[in-house]
Design a protein around this nucleic acid. Structure first.
Lengths: 350, 350
DNA sequence: TGAGAGTGTGAGAGCGCTCTCACAAAGAGG
DNA sequence: CCTCTTTGTGAGAGCGCTCTCACACTCTCA
């Protein structure tokens, strides 16, 4: 009968309790809790003592009910499998977001839909206003979420530049400049026949990194050649295949820039099979500076991205968007770093 | 003046609204929403129509306020940097948990404390009862969270067997049996001088995998030799160092079992430096079946763990713990799979 | 000295929901 | 025909909080 559920009234104290202990009204306690300046120092001290004594913690649900804010943000990761499991991008970005949100006492609600039906449910959930805003990570071209949610008036920030057609705030790393600096490094190392293994042409990182490669080639006055450009899908196998294809078309290749470390690792093994020595015959540069970059032989020179900082920036933007009244769209582009390792050591002068 | 915040009353409809549209009382609508059987079919139909028409979505905060449940669960990841970024363990386990929770319309609140102060805050947060239960991932020996939270009466499930002294439900993979099967595979391949690069001796996976190695050695009647056991910390560098040390002590080694793929990759490079061919001279087996396993040369044989399933199981256990009234502790151990690749190909018969 | 302008505090309504209790209507059993 | 149950429904309290408003003060400044 008397169930006596252990979890009931886990924290017995309420505003009321604190108020009566401190000999003030609920309103005053509320003011203290929420840091209102309109409380005299003496009363504030009494109330704080009472809060301390009772171990009072405000009830989120009750607060939320009246403020109409959930004090929580959704982070939606729509990624079938690929990148989610193959590089530490997600944990890093999550940690960045988490740091910024917890510092502000905001909840991070994680959503990882993994079927179209799930995506729909996720949309319903977020659009229903259960959260104050949402971060969308890694959306592909046909992702219905951004328009769905911005249509519902939910503050939104994307990680990574969205496909054209979608207008929303986002934070991205400078893929184009990152790729460009990688290729410039190869040129500075004396390489002249530089190929690229690009990412998918329907994904912004794929597009931008290819553009950066072309920038550097053009800038250096090197001849552009479609045979020096092959496409992969960011996976290792695709990198190996692309490398085989490139070598067939241009056996004189002396450097390769791959748009991901995984593809670079694939290129490395294809080069080994083809009997080319790295970096002596062919220099290789990857992208992401993932753990894979240091587990290959030789270790990969790679473009490092400030992923955690990206997460933090995203969170800041989102909080700003929720607090502000204007609906201005912001774009933040963060710079990359080239991390030099053995795979791209300069060619010894002839 | 008239701010007219866009987000106010995002979804104007309340129980009240649905009730008046359907011509019933709030209580009846509530019954329909919560699937009570005590509603006549006709009324139910009317109410459902009204809900549909208004796009009614229950207000979580209001419900939560009265039920004293938040319908949300914390997932706490306390991992400084190491494994968090180096293998896909966390995303996988998170996805498993996420699948199970969203299927039940429960929120996943992610917490990633990264300093002792953060850990304290996290403890306060969870202990305050803002969530109905918590999953703790990857806790080290001195983690204060488990006892703190179980002391506060918060339902708890751990990912991975905890240090002795902590009694809580947990889900783990069978580290011991996984390691054992790896070593048995090496023995079946004709290897006789089998070394191991173990993990830290203060972490359950390190301990259990070493125990599994010893089991297999003993079972096969091979001589146990402390010189065949070296320790690493799961990182690549530590694996390379351990390998150097092992080769110095026992140059006749013909196989190595490493307690992580990263350490196995390190061993691979140390073996290359030492001029040993893999798998011809020395066979290597790793653990985790991470992406690194397929990016080495040769590719690594490795022990695969059902990580996603682990996440699902954890979530199931937690939901059960919250719903049940008893405080019974459950332990679930999941089986592993050995994935055979080139690094451990059998020695050609002499 | 008295109107006006702060300043600190309390009373009380109300956020949207659940849940107990009361009650009407309908059927069951004597 | 009258009780007694069963079943469907509604009235209403109350969860813990915020926030508006009113009110009692205390200062200015003419």
């Amino acid at each position: 009968m008397t169930q006596g559920n252990v979890r009931d009234r886990r924290n017995g104290s309420t505003l009321e309790g604190v108020a009566s202990l401190a000999g003030v009204s609920r309103a005053t306690v509320s003011r203290v809790v929420n840091g209102s300046p309109r409380v005299s120092p003496g009363v504030r001290r009494d109330v704080e003592a009472a809060i301390e004594q009772l171990g009072y913690v405000p009830n989120r649900a009750a607060r939320s009910l009246v403020t109409r804010r959930s004090e929580s943000f959704a982070v939606v990761i729509t990624e079938p499998t690929g990148r989610l499991f193959s590089d530490p991008f997600f944990p890093r970005v999550l940690r960045g977001i988490s740091m910024e949100l917890t510092a502000r006492d905001l909840q991070l609600v994680l959503l990882m839909p993994n079927s179209p039906a799930d995506v729909r449910r996720t949309g319903d959930y977020v659009a229903a206003g259960h959260v104050d805003g949402a971060v969308l990570i890694s959306l592909h071209g046909d992702d219905p979420l951004p328009s769905r949610l911005s249509g519902a008036g939910i503050p939104l920030v994307l990680v990574g530049r969205p496909q054209r057609g979608i207008s929303a705030s986002y934070v991205d790393v400078d893929n184009r400049q990152g790729a460009r600096s990688a290729v410039e490094h190869l040129i500075a190392g004396g390489r002249r026949v530089i190929a690229t293994i690009a990412g998918p042409s329907d994904m912004p990182p794929g597009i931008d990194r290819l553009a950066g490669y072309r920038d550097a080639i053009a800038e250096a006055g090197l001849p552009a050649d479609p045979d020096l450009e092959a496409c992969g899908d960011f996976t290792q196998t695709s990198g190996a295949e692309a490398m085989v294809q490139l070598l067939a078309a241009r056996p004189d290749i002396d450097a390769v820039f791959a748009a991901s470390d995984l593809m670079a690792a694939g290129a490395l093994s294809a080069l080994a099979v083809a009997g080319r020595r790295v970096p002596r015959d062919v220099a290789v540069v990857g992208y992401d500076d993932s753990p894979v970059a240091t587990s290959t032989n030789p270790q990969l020179t790679s473009v490092h991205q400030p992923i955690e900082e990206m997460g933090r920036e995203v969170a800041r933007l989102l909080v700003e968007a929720v607090e502000g009244t204007d609906r201005v769209i912001r774009r933040v582009i963060l710079a990359t770093d080239l991390v030099k390792r053995a795979s791209s050591a300069g060619r010894p002068p002839p």
